[in-house]
Each structure stands twice: as C-alpha cells, then as structure tokens.
C-alpha cells in the first residue's frame, strides 16, 4: 500500500552496509569515539545534529522540545556507544531508534504542540507566483493540521515522506510492527485529508 517515495531514499540514511561489512562513516566515528577519540564524537554530532533536529521538530511540533530531545538522544548515544555492533547494521537505524525514543518519551508527549501562529513559514516550493501562493497556503494548513496529530503519527509521516523508509524500518525506529506503522500512516493521512479537504480538493481538481 505504501511504497517508499523513490527520490527520498538517498537523502539521509547514509550508505547502508551489509552485515559484517565495513562500517559506514558515521559508525566508524562512533567506534573511534568509544575508543576515546573525543574529536570523532564531535564530528559525529556535527553530522547527526541537523537532520535529527529537523526530524524531531516535525515529530514534536516545537523547536525547544526538539532541541531537548536531540540532546537527550546524543547523551544516550554516548552512554550506550559500547552496545553498538556494526555487524548488526548501519548506525543510521540505531540512531533513529534512539532519537525516536527520546522524542516520543512520555514526558514530552504530554506537552502541547505548536499552535498555528508558531508554525514556521514554509519554504517557497514552486516556481510560479500563483502556484507558489497555492502551495504556501497548503503548507500553512498542513502545518496546522499536523499539530492536531499524535506524535507517533507525525513521526511515521516524517520518516516515510522525509526519509523514504520502508514500513519495517519505520517500525524499527518506532519500536512497533510494520502493520502498526501502516495504521499510523493511514490514520494520520485520513485526519489530514479531513482537516484540509477544501484546499486539497481545490488544488487537486
């Protein structure tokens, strides 16, 4: 039902490495860091921080919570580095799970998400002025509608549409089954369609 968006797969996952192969560059940095190389961990943080902050902000809907979640995830990464086994897969999957655990932590889940007024202005997505205005209106409505979704649904949508992950990969990141991920996506999209019916039908007509 949900095929991965084809153009998204190479975005931010990093090179996947077959089990037992040479660790990916991020994994090598983590292995060096746990051997005492402080600069390697700093370099790894520089690699991970930007995409992690962007993903956490989408999941949590609030910049301060997202920053807090990323810092907590980095602390866990540092503390649990000795448990990482490059033979069991690339660092990206392990890191995603740590980040999602930190972002979906119960204490944060109970906090309110952003209101419409706090939502960041969307980027200009289209070339023509009319199309740009329409897309901007859809993006504004989408941001407001997304704020109504539970964080797990937002996380599934962000991982699926932003990183092009499979159901299994999203399930691994969220600690659930691929079938449950499909349910999260279906329910999330149904709510979005309902909340944005007017602009979507206008745009899709």
């Amino acid at each position: 039902m949900f095929d991965s968006p084809p153009s998204a797969r190479a975005d931010s996952n990093g090179p996947a490495v077959p089990a037992g192969g040479v660790p990916d560059p991020d994994a090598r940095l983590l292995l060096a860091a746990r051997d005492g190389d402080a600069r390697a961990f700093e370099a790894l943080v520089a690699q991970l921080a930007g995409p992690a902050l962007a993903l956490a902000r989408r999941v949590l809907g609030e910049a301060a919570l997202a920053e807090d979640a990323v810092q907590e995830a980095l602390t866990r990464l540092w503390r649990e580095a000795h448990r990482f086994d490059p033979a069991r897969g690339p660092l990206a999957g392990w890191w995603r799970r740590i980040l999602m655990n930190a972002a979906l932590d119960g204490r944060r889940r109970l906090r309110p998400v952003a209101h419409l007024a706090d939502v960041a202005e969307p980027r200009d997505p289209a070339p023509g002025p009319e199309a740009r205005a329409e897309a901007a209106e859809i993006d504004r409505r989408l941001n407001a509608a997304l704020a109504q979704l539970p964080p797990r649904q937002r996380a599934a949508l962000a991982l699926f549409h932003g990183q092009g992950l499979s159901m299994a990969e999203i399930g691994e990141a969220l600690g659930t089954s691929p079938k449950a991920v499909e349910g999260l996506l279906l329910r999330g999209r149904a709510v979005l369609r309902h909340l944005m019916a007017d602009v979507l039908e206008e745009d899709g007509a």
């Binding site: 968006p5 998204a8 975005d11 921080a49 930007g50 995409p51 902050l53 962007a54 989408r58 960041a120 969307p122 980027r123 997505p125 897309a135 859809i138 993006d139 989408l142 941001n143 997304l146 949508l157 962000a158 699926f160 549409h161 932003g162 990183q163 999209r189 979005l192 369609r193 944005m196 019916a197 602009v199 979507l200 039908e201 745009d203 899709g204 007509a205």
Partner: peptide, 22 residues
C-alpha cells in the same frame, strides 16, 4: 480524489524534507 491525494503527498514531502535551518 486522486488529485487531492497527490496534493497531500506533495505537501507532506515538502514538510518532511525541509532541511535544518529553515
């Protein structure tokens, strides 16, 4: 409607793929 689905997909892709610093 297929067009509405496509519009939602496009909007979600824009939302989900925005880089840091936006």
């Amino acid at each position: 409607v297929a067009g509405a689905e496509a519009a939602l997909d496009a909007a979600l892709a824009r939302w989900a793929r925005g880089g840091p610093g936006e």
